[in-house]
Design a protein around this nucleic acid. Structure first.
Lengths: 153, 153
DNA sequence: GTTTGAGTTAGAGTATACTCTAAGTATTAT
DNA sequence: ATAATACTTAGAGTATACTCTAACTCAAAC
């Protein structure tokens, strides 16, 4: 039993607007139509939409995805080209993750910094170097604004 | 010695257009001007721009960053609010990394699948389940299109 | 049989983040 | 002194990816 566009919207989390837009942009040339001209999605189609979502979410533009879809429709002659696209995208995602981990370290530092600042009652009392993400955070107690007497000690 | 907008563009990789746009959008209320009305960036300013870049790159919209900047300009009274923003953003990045790792697994699977397909000469010979990212990939040799006699065996 | 709900298209509108142009001012090099 | 270069602003233009509207068709429920 094929799925209607509304059912696919539910399953994928994409709006029907988005699904039609993707179709218009040539991202879903494989989707069939019934006698009344309505789209009929198969389970295979859903898998392909998941792949589109993966490529999109990892930073590939719709125009690039379109090129990939065109290659896929050409069949086995484009196997190597498609392999290379996936190799490249995999590498891109690896780099993205590395970069995200750097940003995470920076945000970790900021959390520690602002925890110390909240503790001291002011930013001026806290020093440290955010460029070395796990650098020590030093509180100058002479600058402490004992806003809230902190528990312990 | 303060930096001109062009020097900051070089250092940060942001264009002068983008820097002025960010300034206009209220993301850099801390940047000073000289007698001629030109922007003068300090090293501290550069650090803050790096932070903006970090928040932006981890998915925060300029309008949200603007709110954070406004809080930062209000000083110590907003320490806790800012701490919470960083806690939240850190969590968001952790989730992003987890999601990216799932996408990476899917792409890994696709690479293995297309390597097998290239080897067999056609997609039809290859089966597997991409939803279980490291599922075994099986080649049906009876469907092999010996396009290029592959080395070995 | 007619209302309701979901689908269809073409095309307009929106959001976000730039990116550039034009007209002008200031600084530096020759 | 003048030419080149880098800055200033306001505001227009662009890219990407949706998101919605209007007018219409079709199928099922009452």
């Amino acid at each position: 039993m094929p799925y209607s566009i509304g059912q696919v919207a539910e399953k994928t989390g994409l709006s029907t607007y988005t699904l039609r837009y993707y179709d218009r942009e040539g991202l879903m040339p494989f989707v069939g139509r019934n006698a009344a001209g309505r789209r009929e999605f198969t389970d295979d189609n859903l898998d392909f939409i998941d792949l589109i979502t993966c490529l999109k979410a990892t930073g590939m533009q719709l125009s690039e995805i379109r090129k990939f879809v065109d290659l896929a429709m050409q069949g086995d002659a484009t196997l190597e080209t498609r392999l290379n696209i996936f190799k490249q995208q995999r590498q891109a995602v690896q780099k993205q993750i590395e970069q995200s981990q750097k940003y995470l370290a920076k945000l970790d530092y900021k959390v520690r910094f602002f925890e110390a600042a909240c503790d001291a009652g002011c930013e001026a009392a806290v020093s440290g170097d955010c460029d070395i993400p796990d650098a020590p955070i030093v509180i100058d107690d002479s600058l402490r604004v004992n806003r809230a007497k902190v528990s312990g000690r």
